[in-house]
């Protein structure tokens, strides 16, 4: 930093801004112009448009027709909307914490200096990069109530066959189980975080007589709390938009999806059906905006609480 200031030419100031600063502003904006154009074209304008559509009746073929709050009122009485919302919230508030804790435990285990780490790492990572559709096909077959290998294996332990994809009570557990398989990359993110925890911190705690729990609670977890926070944010957004896994597992040739008794009907699936199967663009836009507001509230709450549990090392960069 000091060298940079020393080497900078003496700035001639005019209106409080030096020529160098103005030149840098121009060049800087030029470099990031794709981002600015992209944000305007693919984010801000469509956002405002969908807000407008949410107050209209719009089927693409005829121009949008203003209906005020009607879409929102109709949603309030729409049973499937509430099913989709509650299913999605179950994923966010049940599957997500399970996902975080499970992956954290796995990362801790892998971090205990075991041999063959590279092999384990590869095994846990690969499912997360396989195409969801390709993997879901084998999962459908594994979960099959009649011919599925999962029921066969559970049968060895005397467990009665379960209709994983046909029993409304078991569809979500099946999806969460499959989701864990797809989410092994989080283990690697935590593992990378754990390996960054300075060894001397742990050693000095040991010298002070800290036991394993104390070391974990007072040093390791706080040190990787930013990583945990990051994965929570990324996964929350992912779970609110939960679509592909459930769609692939439940959609049939008529385009109906959602599993038995809508037990696997998630918010984004119902939104997709309204928008692209029934061409109720206004209705679907209202759904999108409700989702957006919920995501905003949840992430804002997370960011707000983060100051109480996320520990940032004061870094120079």
């Amino acid at each position: 930093m000091t060298t940079l200031i020393a080497k900078s030419p003496p700035a001639r100031r005019r209106w409080g801004v030096s020529r160098l600063q103005r030149r840098n502003l121009m060049i800087g904006l030029l470099f990031i112009s794709p981002a600015i154009i992209g944000m305007a074209l693919f984010t801000i304008v469509p956002m405002l448009q969908s807000l407008y559509y949410s107050f209209t009746d719009y089927n693409i073929l005829q121009p949008p027709y203003w209906v005020g709050l009607e879409n929102y009122e109709d949603l309030f009485d729409d049973r499937v909307f509430w099913i989709g919302l509650s299913n999605t919230l179950i994923m966010v508030f049940l599957a997500l914490p399970l996902h975080i804790v499970f992956n954290l435990v796995m990362a801790f285990l892998l971090n205990s200096k075991i041999r063959g780490l590279a092999i384990y790492r590869t095994i846990f990572y690969i499912p997360s990069i396989t195409p969801v559709v390709a993997s879901a096909i084998v999962w459908m077959w594994i979960f099959n109530g009649q011919y599925g290998v999962l029921n066969e294996i559970l049968g060895w332990f005397g467990i009665q066959p379960i209709g994983w994809l046909t029993d409304p009570d078991w569809v979500k557990p099946a999806l969460i189980f499959m989701g864990a398989w797809f989410g092994g990359n989080t283990i690697l993110i935590y593992l990378a975080g754990l390996q960054e925890v300075p060894a001397d911190l742990i050693e000095s705690a040991e010298l002070d007589g800290a036991n394993a729990w104390q070391k974990t609670w007072s040093i390791t977890l706080p040190m990787i709390s930013p990583v945990i926070f990051y994965t929570i944010i990324i996964n929350i957004i992912g779970y609110f938009q939960y679509f592909t896994e459930a769609w692939v597992m439940t959609a049939n040739r008529e385009g109906a999806a959602g599993g038995p008794a809508n037990s696997a009907m998630f918010y984004s699936m119902y939104l997709y059906q309204n928008a692209f199967q029934q061409l109720k663009m206004g209705y679907a836009s209202a759904m999108a905006w409700i989702l957006f507001v919920i995501v905003l509230i949840v992430t804002a709450l997370l960011f707000f609480t983060s100051r109480y549990w996320v520990y940032y090392r004061s870094e120079d960069n």
Partner: peptide, 28 residues
């Protein structure tokens, strides 16, 4: 490149990650 407003704009840009695709999907 150091320019005024850089960090603020970067945070705005980053926050677009949090926008659900469903919001822009239909108009796009």
């Amino acid at each position: 490149i150091k320019w005024p407003g850089r960090n603020v704009l970067f945070i705005v840009y980053l926050s677009t990650i949090m926008l659900p695709t469903q919001v822009t999907m239909i108009p796009l």
